[in-house]
Design a protein around this nucleic acid. Structure first.
Lengths: 210, 210
DNA sequence: ATGTGCTTGTGAAATCGTTCACAATCTAGG
DNA sequence: CCTAGATTGTGAACGATTTCACAAGCACAT
């Protein structure tokens, strides 16, 4: 596997993630090999796209035959960094935080929830998915102690920027943000936003311009 | 406002949605006008990008002055189709479904939750955010009766494709899917997927390639 | 009324991502 | 060992999106 010369396109990474899901299904089904065309069908793209995506990272296939499902699974896992355990904290024990905490399948894919935080004293101390909710006041020390790699922000937009800054200071380099806030973080911290209202608005646009 | 000649780029629509959020804040703060540069800063883009995005739909600004916050707000709302009420159903009353149902701010933005469905008899009949959970067996008739425009799928991937098909038949043309399934729907139905595991995997990739 | 300073709207250029098309190379079968 | 059939890997073409750069237009001060 050769590391891409410079930064890889995000759409490529997203598709790799999808390919991985389908590969796992194929492997379960006992298929030893798979062609770029078959992978493309599962992921709603084209065979050329699949091959191009993979070619950024190496040559994993055999001409005339396709890809070994098992080997390609291992390769993609390695590319995405899923060949290790990631330690995850959730900030906000409300509806969304609980949903994330209760989402089985995270742990299976290497994401271990090691801490949950909330500002509401009524929530602190209660268990959520086997993890006890801590007071967000102790965020820095706890996050360091837990050696968290990533954080999920499931809190009101008002407090999100401050918490993001504190997380960055505590050594968290990846944040998944469900709030609608615009986070200001150091350049070595990656932030991804999931904004439910925005998704509905894109759907609204699609309906109007149908 | 001139309707764009053909389909508008999705990134443009997403940014419009972000601009709208910042415009509302600016309007709240009593700012009468705003420049493309200021809007760009809020949305993490460039002033040229803002002007280009808006130019697909018309000329809303005044040279030398900028945009009227109020007028631009109204224009973007109209472009996105937020100048009307959308009727929303949620399929799946589990963790994610509850989070969506309880999300205040949807209603404020014109998305009214008119129905919630679940397959689990234990959940049917209970109220969630002021709406009683119905049995998913009655999906078609209920969705038609409620005149739903959009649906949120918050259910296991196994049953999602079937439900998506039934929704399409019942006249729903926009679906926001939280499952990891690949949905097959008629071309006049727009589907958007939000996949939590995938987002974490993109973050994982970012961490590994930092 | 004119000049100054600022900001828009938009072609043109640059960049980025996708699709095409085909040589290279593999397997399997005779 | 050789041929037929399949499928990869990848430059090159294409298409889409972003950035650049500047003329045009407006407000305000003088």
């Amino acid at each position: 596997m050769h590391t891409p010369t410079r930064k890889t396109a995000e759409p490529t990474v997203r598709r790799l993630s999808l390919y991985l899901r389908y590969l796992e299904a194929f492997e379960q089904a006992g298929r030893g090999t798979i062609s770029s065309g078959e992978l493309a069908q599962s992921g709603g793209t084209t065979s050329a796209q699949v091959r191009k995506d993979l070619s950024f990272f190496g040559s994993f296939g055999k001409r005339g035959l396709g890809y070994s499902t098992h080997e390609l699974t291992v390769h993609i896992r390695e590319i995405l960094g899923l060949d290790r355990q990631w330690r995850l904290v959730i900030i906000g024990a409300g509806k969304i935080g609980s949903a994330v905490a209760g989402h089985r399948g995270f742990r299976d894919r290497g994401f271990e929830i090691v801490g949950i935080f909330d500002a509401d004293p009524h929530r602190v101390g209660h268990a959520l998915g086997g993890v006890t909710v801590s007071d967000v006041r102790h965020l820095e020390t706890e996050v360091k102690r837990l050696r968290a790699d990533m954080a999920v922000l499931a809190m009101p937009a008002e407090s999100a920027p401050e918490v993001a800054t504190r997380l960055a200071k505590a050594g968290v380099h990846a944040i998944l943000d469900f709030s609608t806030a615009q986070l200001e973080v150091p350049s070595d911290v990656t932030v991804r936003s999931v904004n439910l209202a925005l998704e509905l608005e894109v759907l609204s646009f699609a309906l109007v311009n149908r």
